[in-house]
Amino acid sequence: MERKDMARKELSEQELAEFEQKLKFAMQHRAAPLGLKQRVLARARERRQTGHGRLWIMQRLAASIVLAAMFGGFAVYRQAEERAAEQKRGEQAREQVLTAMRITSRTLNRVNERLAETGR
């Protein structure tokens, strides 16, 4: 009885070994579907171009923002400069008026003195 069991076990192991060999043969790579490589390469190219396109847009946007900031800053600077110049002009005009008033006042004083002298 034991010999039969041993024989059955050996047969089973032999069968498995043979099956393994057949399995290796059966499991060779299947050829990839026609056109798979072309589709993959086309989509990879597309993805790279879209990526580059986005990068290009972002770069242009960044450059535009920098330029806008530069021009805006310059405009603000010019405005401040003009305001300062205007303020200076205003002060100058004020000084002129005051000077004129001082001159007028002195002149009037002199006239008054003369009149006072002649009136005696």
């Binding site: 499991m27 790579h29 990839a32 993959v40």
Partner: peptide, 13 residues
């Protein structure tokens, strides 16, 4: 491209 050519069958299988 070369990698796709080399490995597409393996991945598909």
């Amino acid at each position: 491209e070369q990698l796709v050519e080399e490995h597409q069958s393996m991945v598909f299988s």
